[in-house]
Design a binder for these strands. Structure first.
Lengths: 220, 220, 220, 220
DNA sequence: TATGAATGAGAATTCATTCAT
DNA sequence: AATGAATGAATTCTCATTCAT
């Protein structure tokens, strides 16, 4: 019979081991990619035995998914404040978009390696994982679309094919995140990049100019 | 010594075998992905022996690259007309952008499976292949940026951080191609989708409206 | 963490597995030769899985070398007593030569299969292995030469080109070992053969007769 | 119908092709060894098609044997003069031995690569080839033994176990040939080496000195 | 519960040989 | 007769997963 204290300790240690495995897996996958990462790499880095891995995860595939879940949960959490209050005018709209993106950028930056990992390796695992990623993108796209529709209905955005535009925006974001994390973006602070892109999304590049109120990125 | 006739025949036969292998590889990769595709799948589909594969390609990796080269050559060819004449005003600009995208769409549609294949599996092969894809994207991005700068200087586009915007546009395009080829786009003809996106890129979604001249997709 | 007892057990088990693999490899190589022996032959004989082999050896080549090292170590050990005391006269010289050869013969007989294996297959593996064998022969040749020079200087052997003669003696020995192990030698006990050869090396076949003191093999 | 002239030409060309293949095979085998030599190496060097090889030889193994036969024929030919007249006294004996060895050395030198090839790779081909080599060595050993016995009976050699001694002599010879062709022998002319060895075989190294008449190698 | 030795199904690759032309 | 493209059986090696301790 274990004392409660013992049990507690055990549970703690198990959680720690699991988390160490996840971290090691993240590092290994990022370094070598999913396919070239060996379970032996992960356990060596985590400092546990080969068999121990399988006490925590059923397969290599599963730990990959666990990392994905951990990341998406964190990312999706950033969208919650967004739904609470819809913006009342164009300026507010742009401000809150920018704010959301900056919050997302923080999360992304914190998870730099994982984000790149899933961006690049995710779609190659198998159909099933592809579907899971699709689901996440779609969820975000639906939020964006909802926002766009709200703006149109409220009259501070032209009416457009909002699902297309929402997806286009996601495409923009994904591409720039990729470049950013790969250090292939001009050295300007990421906040400026975000402002530039929000402007682009709002006014295109064909507009005579960006309306005065929005031209400066004093938003935050 | 072989007669010239024989030599000719041999060259033909070899070209045919090689092309059969490429086609089978494309099919197999698209079906199962790079990592799950076996050389034996490819040769079985091509109807040749296992060893024959290695007379033409050194490895699975190499035939994947050969397919990539075949595709990129075809795609990049569509950009040539673009460089010949720069548009003189905003309307011309939009028209020629749209025309280019439609031509690209045709190529992409013809190579549906391959495009999806590289979009999804390409970045997961290895660092080296990643770099090759990067190079292609960058080349396109530079063309786009060149166009944007021209428009700015000519006064029919607002000045913007053209390299960012160029990359953003590529992101949009990649995302929509992905959805399109995956049949996840609303059923409207791809031409309409392109017009919608060109409008978005030119005017954003925040504009009061799209200027009259550009509103309709009578562009070719 | 494993208990010390566990660790001990593991080390034992591993040593056992490794040694089983070595024995099976020796048997297989002797039966079929290096090139025709398959890893699968070895593991089947050892009663372990195919993968187990690769936990212990990197390649067929490596286990072959391991066997070689095991054997040469054992053989070279027989030379140690030799260096301790140099013979003082011709009779002593002949006696100690004979004694050494008889000790070597015992080792060789115990490793009958391995000796034949390396004698015949060793030089065909590759340049590198050839070099390793050369090194062993040279080491022995140098010892022999040292002995010859000592005898010359001490006046109980005629002066001769001692490196040539040393190599010639090694050649004699190798050839007779080969025949012996192949059962192609007249049935006389190996001790008699050795005495005969020592006589031949000392007195040639041209001498009128072998001096009285050496004619009988009462040497031990 | 081919004219006789045509037929003649054809036969010539075929002989030439076969001989080119043999030469190329000799070169390739010597360079890379039997097992690592590819038929494609041979035909590339010979300048004929892959299939052509099999019009002249049934297998890789067969061309190896053909080379062996070519060589042994040439070597064995040197022994013929030996049988014609047996030496009448010790001096004559030593002279004719030395002469034979020098003639053999010439043949060996001419076929340097082939000799080394068979010395090293021969025994690793398979049991069958081993047997063929054994047969050749035995044939030579029997000749040597016959000579020894003659010397004993004639009273100018001590009686000895002539088959053992004959084999020992062959061992000496093989070892020194190996070293010689591998350039690992002291730089002295091969003739001197031979004389040294003949002396050793006749008088051993234990004799007080080599009898006057034999001490100088003015033999030839 | 943790371990790490063992596993074996698979996968890539090679190359002597065949065979259609 | 000569060719060289095609072959596929044979072999090595890998590594996620299992399992005895």
């Amino acid at each position: 019979m274990l004392t409660d204290f013992r049990k507690q300790k055990n549970i703690q240690r198990k959680a720690q081991t699991k988390s160490r495995l996840l971290d090691s897996a993240a590092a290994a996958f990022s370094r070598a990619g999913f396919h070239k990462t060996l379970i032996s790499d992960i356990v060596a880095d985590a400092g546990v035995g080969q068999g121990t891995f399988y006490r925590y995860f059923d397969s290599k595939r599963e730990i990959f998914e666990a990392l994905f879940d951990r990341l998406t949960t964190e990312i999706m959490a950033e969208f919650t404040p967004m739904s609470s209050k819809l913006p009342g005018d164009a300026s507010e709209y742009q401000k809150s978009s920018s704010a959301l993106l900056k919050r997302l950028a923080t999360v992304v930056e914190h998870n730099r390696d994982l984000v790149l990992l899933f961006l690049r390796q995710g779609p190659s695992i198998d159909r099933d994982f592809e579907t899971r990623m699709t689901a996440v993108y779609d969820q975000i796209a639906r939020l964006a679309q909802h926002y766009l529709d709200h703006a149109s209905k409220s009259g501070f955005a032209r009416s457009c094919n909002s699902d297309l535009v929402a997806q286009a925006i996601i495409g923009m974001a994904l591409r720039l995140v990729d470049l950013w994390l790969d250090n292939r973006l001009p050295a300007s602070p990421i906040e400026d990049v975000i402002d530039e892109l929000v402007n682009f999304a709002f006014w295109g590049f064909g507009a005579d100019s960006v309306p005065q109120d929005f031209s400066k990125g004093e938003i935050r």
